[in-house]
Design a protein around this nucleic acid. Structure first.
Length: 737
DNA sequence: AGTCCCCCCATTTTT
DNA sequence: TGGGGGGACT
């Protein structure tokens, strides 16, 4: 068969990777080097040149979005549908295994998935029951502890009873949590991976089956795998399996949630004969941007090593703006975006990236003032919104009455007179009898364990769910959703909140119906009966495992705002890295140890390499944080970029920054370059008339503090009265004429 | 049961 | 500075 079309658009290294005969292959793919392309073409190559059946291929990604994109790109390259091929996230694939082999995995057939919100609610209740001192151990902390242990592949029983209070307390809760999950048939995200791993260890015949089946295993974003994901892969890859992993150690930015950069750095230790292919040619950015990225990341130790290059031009210099404060920074950025848009470009080709979400507010304000459409990524995901989760809980009860999480959630939403006291009776009945909350409800009503009023209310709830199920029995999935939302009382309940909030909630409920309507059961395969409970259950699983991409206003031409973390994998013509300040980026929580700092540096590397044509860096000399003003030094990352690549921006003109090697203090250099704005501070006195770069002219009203802490209050003619840090405000004294 | 107020907290986020 | 959660009060 002619397979030349698979190679046509590839460079030499990409071809080497795609057609590699090695059993184990590590593709070290720099940013913008065609990583997904190589994966997609490799699969096409396996199928067309190697006559590999799609059934023999397993492709793993981290997000559902990446999985969908990969599948559709392979399909369009091959011009055929790939229904037999397993393409999905670690969680999605592991979940699929558990559904097929629930018995061997020690799960009930109707087990359901606990998302992080459900998990937290459960932990809150457990902490109460166990009388854990909430001031010392927050449920959030427990959640973090349990999830990190599971990420490491550890169950409570595996952990040593160290003699410190922390471990002991956490273990008590972990054990109680495991027990509750087992009793209720609940599985959290970490548990999905853990069980899937154990499934193979405990059932050699099942493992053998999948090892035989998946001759070729491909993993994307390998630098993000955590211990349990890696262990799962290790077990799956037996004697004869072929493993290809693609990743970039320089883009590992999720160490804080368990990702092990060592997995990629030490790949050749576990797979000794592994071949390594480097993809270093970059098709995204200008040479200037790549040089900056290369130099920056060279400061990290223990890298596999890689040097990005391009055929293309140098492009524009990187612009650096030293803002007076965060407002000035935002204003500057918005001005640049307006110029860009006025120059005939699309707003959506520009992105503002920042380290922490709190930074978005100031930027939003400035964008709003400038009447510039914007879109913020992140925030609550669709399926995690309160109203959506409420509706899903009702739907879950149709499938499984014994879903305690769902009962807890909606037994009194909307309010039907089942208060804390009643619920407490039901809960304790359930735990002494070892039955589900639903069963406890029914028996408490029958055995008259509740007051007449409470009993009526509980009965009404039970009857409501039964009635909903009956009405839904023969309906298609989206009709079910429609009916449940309409008759659960959720609409008036959320309407009552009033205002914009209520409107948004009702819209989301509508959106949920749309989502059920377009739910594509192709992914589950065989079962096409849209009215079956199985279809509903499959939808609910998908809702738990998929963030729900749908975002409002997706088609509007808007500038993109997001954290550096969520920018990974994306690219934009124009990129702003805002808040390049010590303590913010690198963040103060991560800068006191080498590994934290190096991860921050990788994050910066990710940010820089998002830019195709033009990169702006900015930092504020003072920034309001948690209410009070902080003076900020420019980020060390700015200094790690060669000075000749950077053009410093001043208010009215652009000057090229002088090349001055190895200056220890970046800000002193900056001040030197701005010598013309600097002013001897002794000239200021009360009543003195001054001019400020941003606020214009004003009169000194007051001052306090000394040295670097000195502040002056100035009453500006147009901007009103402000307190300014004297060492940073760059006030120029005017003759008092 | 619902509202209001106070106190505490404050990186990054996917599944 | 501001949002969320918990407790107390109506």
């Amino acid at each position: 068969m002619d397979v030349s079309h698979i190679f046509e658009s590839l460079n030499t290294e990409q071809r080497n990777a795609v057609a590699s005969p090695s059993q184990n292959l590590l593709v070290l793919a720099g940013a913008g080097s065609g990583k997904t392309r190589v994966l997609v073409h490799r699969i096409a190559w396996l199928m067309q040149a190697g006559h590999t059946s799609p059934f023999a291929i397993l492709a793993v990604t981290f997000t559902n979005k990446a999985a969908r994109e990969m599948r559709s790109r392979i399909e369009s390259l091959l011009g055929q549908s790939l229904s037999g091929m397993w393409v999905g996230t670690f969680h999605g694939l592991a979940h699929r295994l558990l559904r097929s082999h629930w018995k061997e995995a020690g799960l009930p057939e109707d087990f359901h998935i606990l998302d992080s919100d459900d998990q937290l609610r459960l932990l809150k209740r457990l902490c109460k029951t166990l009388h854990v001192d909430e001031d010392k151990w927050s449920p959030r902390q427990c959640q973090w502890y349990i999830n990190s242990q599971k990420d490491e592949g550890l169950r409570a029983a595996h952990i040593e009873h160290l003699d410190d209070v922390y471990t002991r307390t956490m273990l008590d809760i972990y054990r109680a949590y495991e027990e509750a999950c087992n009793r209720g048939g609940m599985v959290d995200f970490g548990e999905i991976l853990l069980r899937a791993h154990e499934l193979w260890l405990n059932n050699p015949q099942i493992l053998d089956h999948y090892q035989r089946r998946f001759q070729h295993i491909l993993v994307d974003e390998f630098q993000d795998t955590n211990a349990i994901q890696y262990a799962w892969l290790r077990v799956l890859t037996g004697e004869g399996n072929h493993l290809m992993v693609v990743g970039d150690d320089d883009q590992s930015i999720y160490g804080w949630r368990g990702a092990k950069i060592e997995n990629i750095q030490k790949f050749n230790l576990d797979y000794p004969a592994a071949e390594m292919v480097r993809l270093e040619q970059n098709y995204r950015s200008t040479s200037t941007i790549l040089k900056a990225a290369n130099k920056l990341i060279a400061n990290n130790q223990g890298r596999l090593g890689k040097n990005l290059w391009t055929d293309g031009d140098d492009g524009e210099q990187i612009s650096l703006y030293a803002a007076f404060n965060e407002q000035d920074e935002a204003r500057y950025i918005v001005d640049r975006v307006q110029d860009w848009f006025a120059g005939g470009n699309r707003r959506s080709d520009a992105a503002i990236l920042y380290r922490s979400n709190a930074q978005s507010r100031e930027l939003e304000d400035a964008l709003l003032r400038a009447d510039m459409p914007y879109r913020i990524y992140g925030g609550h995901r669709f399926y995690e919104r309160l109203e959506v989760k409420n509706a899903l809980a009702y739907l879950r009860l149709l499938v499984n009455r014994n879903d305690d999480t769902a009962v807890e959630r909606v037994i009194n939403v909307p309010t039907r007179g089942i208060g804390g006291r009643t619920l407490e009776i039901i809960r304790s009945f359930a735990s002494t009898e070892g039955c589900s909350l639903w069963q406890a409800c029914a028996r408490c009503v029958n055995d008259s364990l509740l007051s007449a009023r409470a009993a009526n209310a509980v009965l009404a709830f039970l009857q409501l769910i039964d009635a909903l199920e009956q009405a839904c029995e023969k309906l298609e999935l989206y009709r079910k959703a429609e009916h449940v939302i309409a008759h659960s009382g959720l609409i008036p309940h959320h309407e009552k909140e009033g205002g914009e909030k209520a409107r948004a909630r009702l819209e989301n409920l509508e959106e949920l119906i749309t989502a059920t309507n377009s739910f594509d059961d192709a992914e589950i395969g065989e079962d096409f009966d849209l009215t079956s409970n199985a279809t509903l259950a499959a939808f609910l699983d998908q809702a738990a495992l998929d963030a729900g991409e749908s975002q409002a206003g997706e088609n509007e031409d808007a500038i993109q705002l997001m954290t550096l973390h969520s920018a990974k994998g994306l690219e934009f013509q124009l990129v702003f890295l805002a808040g390049m300040e010590e303590g913010l980026f690198p963040h103060k929580m991560s800068m006191d140890n080498i590994s934290g700092l190096e991860e921050e540096r990788r994050l910066c590397y990710v940010g820089i390499t998002r830019a195709k044509a033009k990169l702006y860096l900015s930092h504020a000399e003072s920034r309001r944080l948690h209410g009070d003003v902080n003076l900020c030094r420019p980020s060390r990352f700015i200094r790690e970029i060669p000075a000749e690549l950077i053009a410093e921006v001043r208010l009215k003109s652009v000057v090229t920054r002088a090349v001055s090697p190895n200056l220890q203090n970046g800000s002193s250099r900056i001040n030197k370059l701005r010598g013309d704005i600097e002013v001897p501070q002794t000239e200021l006195s009360l009543g003195q008339r001054v001019v400020h770069g941003k606020f214009g002219e004003g009169v000194v009203l007051n001052y306090e503090g000394q040295g670097t802490n000195a502040r002056v209050q100035v009453n500006f003619d147009s901007a009103g009265s402000k307190w300014l840090a004297l060492s940073h405000a760059k006030l120029v004294a005017l003759s008092s004429a």
